[in-house]
Design a protein around this nucleic acid. Structure first.
Length: 400
DNA sequence: TGTTGAATCCCAC
DNA sequence: CTAACGGTGGGATTCAACA
């Protein structure tokens, strides 16, 4: 490794939710069947039929089932598919155990999602051995100590490490050093490059760009005629394996906080919609308050039955994190732009977050909202004591 | 000319 | 029936309004 090069690992849990669900169930009942050995999936709410596949077993994958597809679709492909509901609290625990294990290898660790992490091993790898040996050691330890498999990608930056962890699965470690790019990365279809989605793939197709090689060897200015300026520059660098972003140990402050829900039945009644907005306001408000932040912008989202989505937003005169204030703004926005047709999804999102300024709030809030704040505090404490779902509005319980 | 806001689009997990 | 489907969050883009 030359002196300025970094050593970056990307660790990715194979079929995370399904693996964790299996380990969890086997721990509770050693006689139960290992979901990983049958066609199975972790999926959303079976009852309302609104779920999608969140994770699938290898056997389910052999039926052509892919993550993100509707459960009904997956069941058509494989009628015997065993579908289990997700258990996020359990997954969070396994995630924490994994991160704790990984943190033994470097202090420079960043959790990218519930089941992925980047490790900057530059300053610590010499304590443990050669890069590939360390990765295999981590992989073995995770399986032996925690019971599930991971893939680990090894390279000199985050992009290449992440691409490498996506190579052959499961339970494998791969390197993708810059010298290996022509052989290991450029032949791949362009949509396998991180940050190339459906839309970019289509535009690349127009330009005759099919592989990552094609993209890497296309003039950036050509890209900029069909895609955004910043995006073109970024994706061209990615295709050439360039990524200077450091592994950040501390995450940046949250920029927004929202809550949305696909309703178990389409809503056509204004009063019902308002009750849903109240429940959403309550969730968002509680989360803002627990983070000691307030918002200055509120957005309401409506998805109609044809899946067309619209948003409407407003900037508040003063920052707030009280349920009642969020709710009132959301109602006003909703009434301003709802076209009275059946609603599939409702959402509220708060942005322009800032540390709650108590002096400002006490200056501008009147006695009435003071009562609401007390109500919020009471609800919050119950949530904390009994769990977030213990307090629900009547409409929320009645729904469905 | 440059900034802000609003609505939409795109991406990831 | 062109179609069966989540929740959350970050960021870019486009256009209008405004200074």
């Amino acid at each position: 490794m030359s002196k300025n090069e970094r050593l970056i690992f990307h660790v990715d849990v194979n079929s995370a939710f399904l693996s964790w669900e299996s380990v969890h169930r086997l721990a509770a009942d050693p006689e139960s069947i290992d979901l990983r050995t049958i066609p199975s999936a972790v999926g959303g709410d079976k009852q309302s039929r609104h779920g999608i596949v969140l994770a699938k077993s290898t056997q389910a994958k052999s039926f052509g089932i892919v993550t993100g597809e509707p459960l009904t679709h997956a069941l058509q492909k494989c009628p015997s598919l065993v579908v289990v509901p997700p258990n996020f609290e359990v997954y969070t625990r396994y995630s924490e155990r994994l991160m704790n294990l990984l943190s033994e290898y470097t202090p420079t660790l960043n959790q990218f999602s519930i089941d992925e992490a980047f490790l900057d091993m530059t300053d610590t790898y010499h304590l443990f051995g050669a890069p590939m040996d360390i990765a295999n050691q981590i992989r073995d330890r995770v399986l032996k100590e925690l019971g599930f498999t991971v893939n680990i990608g090894i390279s000199t930056n985050k992009l290449l490490a992440k691409m490498a962890s996506d190579f052959k699965k499961p339970n494998l470690c791969h390197s993708l050093f810059p010298s290996e790019i022509p052989e290991k990365m450029w032949p791949l279809p362009v949509e396998e490059l991180f940050f190339v989605g459906k839309s970019a793939k289509a535009k690349f197709g127009i330009l005759g760009i099919r592989s990552i090689y094609d993209l890497a060897h296309t003039n950036v200015n050509i890209l900029k005629t069909h895609l955004g300026n910043k995006y073109s520059a970024l994706i061209h660098e990615y295709a050439n394996g360039i990524d200077e972003e450091p592994v950040e140990v501390t995450d940046p402050k949250a920029k927004g906080c929202g809550n949305s829900i696909t309703l178990s039945q389409d809503v056509i009644d204004n009063a019902i919609a308002k009750q849903v907005l109240l429940a959403l306001s309550e969730t968002v408000g509680a989360r803002l308050r627990s983070s000691n932040v307030s918002c200055s912008c509120i957005t309401v989202e409506i998805k109609y039955t044809n899946f067309q989505t619209y948003t409407h937003q407003t900037v508040l005169p003063h920052q707030t994190n009280t349920t009642a204030t969020i709710y009132e703004a959301a109602c006003r926005l909703f009434d301003e732009f709802w076209d009275n047709s059946p609603i599939r999804l409702l959402g509220i999102r708060t942005t322009k977050l800032d540390d709650t300024d108590f002096s400002q709030i006490s200056l501008f809030d009147n006695n009435q909202s003071d009562k609401f704040k007390k109500l919020d505090s009471a609800i919050d404490s119950i949530r904390n004591k009994y769990g977030i779902d213990s307090v629900k509005r009547a409409s929320f319980l009645k729904k469905g």
